[in-house]
Design a protein around this nucleic acid. Structure first.
Lengths: 179, 179
DNA sequence: GTAGTCATGTAAGACGTTACATGATTCT
DNA sequence: AGAATCATGTAACGTCTTACATGACTAC
């Protein structure tokens, strides 16, 4: 499970409560998880059982108490171990490709409209991603190298979306030639 | 669920048994599902209940009988409807990026080794993908346009892997400059 | 006789999602 | 008065995976 390491990573910066972790995930460009509670809270409980994190309950008057988690030594080691581990190439799973696989059922006009639609969606995603990056350079990185890494991580998705736009361009050209 | 449309799509070519569908999925480059039985058989039962497919039980002596499925008119329509529907851009989820997010814990040498490792993995994937495409142009497409579509679908993953190699190159260059 | 293929299906579990439950406080 | 935020957690469900159960036939 990768989210457990994302959590350990955030705790390596500073202590977080479950609520704060969820908020961070939901706003982060790089850490893609939605930040839903059903994933964060049980993971924290498990990490606690495994001795990788410890928590301090903070009472705030009549507020619900919050559990502020921080890394243990074992947690530090687990994080470093994972970061060093052999990286795996992630699988690409595009529903659109499955749609395209049977797009021969469509007329040339319908197919063109489908591709056009997808191109617009891609360009919209690209714009949104770039806007998110522009607005939110405020990840609390501590060294210039970490700033660079987070910048490149955010750039990664842009690079792939651009590659898809290019691919789509080649596909459309090939279709025009084919006619 | 996209696999249900992938199944409808295959059945639009010709009748398939569940076993044949699983085999097709497990060998296909474009249709990325593993072809595990727990996904294929229940889906066929559901599609049958919904009236999108019908089956004919084929008895073969003492062999286990096989259920050969084919599309109904409603199935044809459902497939066409889905192919025409608004395409969605798929989310990119790379565990490697999460690993990179806390790679500032590593020394320059360790980080370089991590990036090197990932680059090798990427290039291996690219080679494997290209080899799969070279070996297996035998998808039973019926029109030259469909041949083109399936070629571009197989090419899609290559294009993205190449983009990732480029991105990695930019990252490494930026890191060298940074030092 | 051992492994592989043909053929159906179930069990259990990893990972992710939305929606719900609860309850106080703070902002408009 | 109503909505948003702070803060925990559970329920239900969707998708996908590996592994198991069963049983006959086929090729080495």
């Amino acid at each position: 499970m990768a989210i457990e390491y994302a959590i350990l990573g955030l705790l390596s910066w500073r202590p977080f409560s479950g609520y704060e972790l969820r908020k961070f995930f939901s706003e982060s460009v790089a850490l893609y998880w939605s930040g839903n509670s059903n994933q964060v809270y049980p993971t924290l409980v498990r990490l606690h059982k495994e001795g990788l994190v410890e928590n301090e309950v903070r009472q705030r008057g009549n507020y619900p108490p919050s559990k502020v988690y921080s890394l243990t030594m074992a947690g530090e080691e687990a994080l470093t171990g994972w970061v060093t581990a052999a990286p795996a190439v992630s699988q690409i799973r595009s529903t659109f490709l499955t749609q395209l696989a049977w797009a021969d059922r469509l007329t040339s006009e319908e197919l063109d409209s489908l591709l056009n639609h997808y191109q617009h969606e891609l360009q919209l995603k690209l714009l949104m991603q770039r806007e998110l990056i522009r607005r939110k350079p405020a990840e609390p990185a501590r060294t210039s190298r970490e700033v660079l890494l987070w910048k490149m991580i955010a750039d990664h998705d842009c690079a792939l979306y651009e590659a898809e736009v290019d691919w789509l361009g080649r596909l459309r050209q090939a279709l025009v030639k084919e006619e």
